[in-house]
């Protein structure tokens, strides 16, 4: 498996670590436990098909990336920095 880091180019999967669904970016603002928090931490659409998930180019530039990917075919449609044009 190979991913195209927006900063470093195409690299082997070995250089990346994985964090799961990109919903992790949408952290609830509340400090009290709620159904939103339960959803945020636990409940997942878990699609068999296109998904957006988080990877870090850990053994490269360190950038956190949002990867649009197909969980059935493993084809990769898009890779971008987790926070748009934010400096990584």
């Amino acid at each position: 498996m190979r991913l195209r880091c927006p900063l470093c180019g195409e690299r082997d999967r070995r250089e990346f670590t994985y964090k799961g669904a990109a919903v992790a970016l949408d952290r609830p603002a509340t400090e009290a436990w709620s159904a939103d928090w339960d959803d945020y931490l636990h409940n997942r659409a878990n699609p068999a098909g296109e998904t957006r998930d988080l990877w870090q180019h850990a053994a490269g530039c360190g950038a956190w990336l949002v990867v649009t990917r197909d969980t059935v075919t493993h084809s990769i449609a898009d890779v971008r920095l987790a926070r748009g044009e934010g400096t990584a």
Partner: peptide, 9 residues
């Protein structure tokens, strides 16, 4: 790094 880039960019 996750917190910095992902949550507090």
């Amino acid at each position: 790094e996750w917190v910095r880039q992902g949550l507090r960019p």
